[in-house]
Simulated scan of single mutants.
Amino acid sequence: MMEDKSHILLNNLLYSCVDKKQRSNESFVPEHAFGYMISGETHQKTNEGTRVFGAGTIALARRNQLVRSEKVPEPGGEFKAINIFIDQQFLRRYSAEHKLAPAKPYTGDHIHILQPDPFIKGYFDSLKPYFDHPERATDNMAELKTKEAVELLLNFNPDFYDFLFDFSEPYKIDLEAYMNQNYMFNVPATQFAKLTGRSLASFKRDFEKVFRMAPGQWLQQKRLNEAYYLIREKGQKPSEVYLEVGFENLSHFSYTFKKAFGIVPSRV
Rank of each mutant, 00 (worst) to 15 (best):
R62Y: 10
F90K: 10
G262I: 07
M37L: 14
K172H: 06
G246T: 03
R136T: 13
A81G: 12
G197V: 05
R205D: 13
G56S: 08
M213E: 15
K80Y: 07
Y171W: 04
Y229K: 15
F203W: 03
K222N: 11
K5M: 11
A101R: 15
L13G: 00
I38P: 01
R51W: 05
L127S: 01
H133K: 12
L14V: 14
I231N: 07
P129A: 05
P116T: 09
R232Y: 08
L66R: 02
F261L: 09
F207L: 09
P118A: 14
Q22H: 08
M2A: 06
R267V: 08
F124T: 04
F53P: 00
F192L: 14
V18F: 03
A149V: 02
A137N: 01
S24I: 05
Y183R: 05
E70D: 06
D19Y: 05
G197T: 05
E97H: 08
P118N: 08
F79T: 01
K99E: 13
Q191H: 13
I173Q: 15
R62P: 01
L224M: 08
L219I: 10
T46D: 12
E169T: 10
I120R: 02
Q221A: 13
E148H: 12
I231F: 07
H7E: 12
R267I: 08
A201I: 11
V210T: 15
E48C: 08
F53M: 11
D87M: 09
F203G: 03
Y161P: 01
F185Y: 13
A101C: 10
V187M: 06
P73F: 06
Q181S: 13
G122V: 11
G262L: 09
I38S: 02
Y161D: 04
T190E: 15
G35T: 06
E48I: 03
N12T: 12
Q44H: 08
G197N: 06
K45N: 09
S95L: 03
K172W: 03
L154R: 01
V72E: 06
V187S: 01
L195H: 01
E226P: 00
D206P: 00
Q220L: 09
A33C: 08
R68L: 14
R92Y: 04
F131P: 00
G197R: 03
Y123I: 05
P188R: 05
I8K: 06
Y130W: 13
D206H: 06
K259E: 14
G262V: 10
L60W: 00
K259H: 08
N182V: 09
H98C: 04
T46Q: 05
N186I: 04
H43L: 15
F185M: 09
M179D: 04
K222D: 06
M184H: 10
T256P: 02
A227C: 06
R68S: 13
D206I: 03
M184D: 04
F192S: 03
N83W: 11
M2F: 15
T50H: 02
E143S: 10
N83A: 10
L60N: 01
L91R: 01
M2L: 13
V72N: 03
G235T: 10
K99C: 11
W218L: 09
P30M: 10
Y228M: 09
K71R: 15
Y183C: 03
H110L: 07
Y106R: 03
K20Q: 15
L164A: 01
G122Q: 08
A201K: 11
T138K: 03
L195S: 02
I84F: 04
V210L: 07
F207D: 00
K128E: 14
L200V: 11
F28D: 02
T107M: 08
I120P: 00
